[in-house]
């Protein structure tokens, strides 16, 4: 039984350091532009911080991943290609790519550069994953958060590409890389600009006693006094369907698959990914420490794994919406 690697988010240098200090095997980051899917103001790395982060990770025996996981448009690829060149020059351990044209570029120009298939590639089955392996020699694939545990096992069984799955963090209810809801409302999407429901399109309006959250004018939710007013990610609002108002697409809950750790190890998952490059260093530190402890405890005594109370409490404190779900791993979620 192999021990899955722990892959942790680094939105900036302090997060990267705390992830490494708390036991991440890999840290993943992005550049300060639209070449990555968390293109948020105040987030991400310039070249000098990337270099410093890489030194820090390598000194501790950890590896660093650069996410270049948006889709260049039209003639726009050279900018993304330069990001790949820079990653290779810096000695980044692997790049996470979503666009096939970029994978082709990277595999031809930098054959030594390790490629990971981004979740944004929407590869949900082994035929797709094996195709990317045959064409570009990918070393790992990250699965979209839409498969049940049995379906994940089926993928692992039918490919030699090591498989990475999401273990914790904010939950995309749509197949990643196949969602244009954000650009429908705001003109910017994860695929085109690396953003979803961007902050610049959000407007909060006090309306009598209640508080309205709007995205480019569209009412995403309306909060009564005392209700916890979460960020208006457009698929997590309350809407009216046939006269009934509810979370018609998804509740504001986050993914926590820790209870499935023994099964994930058993089916041969190579790595577990923590979501949250947009979250604080405190979040990254806490989640990394707890998942490190859980993975180590399971490796030491696989037959007797149980979730410690302080782990559960620690994760609950940082979860979005304070509510957890097993997501699609659990068939009932669907």
């Amino acid at each position: 039984m192999s021990i899955p690697e722990l892959v942790c988010p680094a939105g900036n240098l302090p997060s990267l350091k705390t992830a490494v200090d708390n036991g991440a095997d890999w840290v993943y980051m992005g550049l300060k532009d639209e070449t990555n899917a968390r293109n948020f103001a105040g987030l991400n790395f310039d070249a000098s911080h990337a270099r410093e982060g890489l030194r820090y990770a390598h000194a501790a025996g950890a590896k660093m991943l650069l996410a270049i996981n948006t889709f260049p448009q039209g003639q726009g690829a050279p900018r993304w290609q330069r990001a790949i060149d820079n990653a290779a020059d810096l000695g980044i351990d692997a790049v996470i790519l979503a666009d096939a044209g970029l994978m082709r570029y990277a595999s031809e120009r930098h054959p030594q550069l390790r490629l990971h298939l981004s979740v944004q590639t929407s590869a949900t089955n082994y035929e797709a994953i094996n195709f990317y392996q045959e064409n570009f020699g990918i070393s790992r694939a990250v699965l979209p958060r839409v498969l049940s545990l049995a379906q994940v096992a089926e993928v692992v069984k039918n490919t030699t590409v090591p498989i990475e799955v999401f273990g914790f963090g904010s939950l995309c209810v749509m197949v990643e890389g196949r969602c244009a809801l954000s650009s429908y409302v705001t003109g910017e999407s994860p695929n085109t600009r690396g953003v979803c429901s961007p902050a610049k399109a959000v407007r909060w309006e006090k309306r009598g006693e209640s508080l309205d959250a709007r995205l480019n004018g569209v009412l995403i939710d309306r909060f009564a006094p005392g209700e916890n007013a979460g960020y208006p990610t457009l698929c997590k609002g309350r809407f009216d369907v046939e006269g009934e108002t509810h979370y018609a697409i998804e509740d504001p809950s986050s993914l926590n698959a820790m209870a499935l750790l023994p099964e994930l190890v058993k089916i041969g998952i190579a790595a577990i990914k923590i979501e949250g490059r947009q979250r604080s260093p405190a979040y990254v530190g806490a989640v990394t420490r707890i998942w490190r402890a859980a993975i180590d405890a399971h490796a030491k005594n696989p037959g007797h794994f149980s979730i410690q109370t302080d782990w559960a409490n620690g994760l609950a404190r940082v979860a979005e919406g304070q509510q957890h779900t097993l997501g699609a791993y659990h068939r009932k979620w669907k």
Partner: peptide, 30 residues
């Protein structure tokens, strides 16, 4: 989706559908 592309590539001419994310010139050429 890309599983279908694997089953068709090199075997039969096919249509690349709207969900394949062909956003740029290089991907179109591929």
């Amino acid at each position: 989706e890309m599983g279908a592309v694997r089953l068709l590539a090199g075997r039969a001419p096919f249509v690349a559908g709207p969900h394949l994310n062909i956003y740029n010139n290089e991907t179109l050429a591929w």
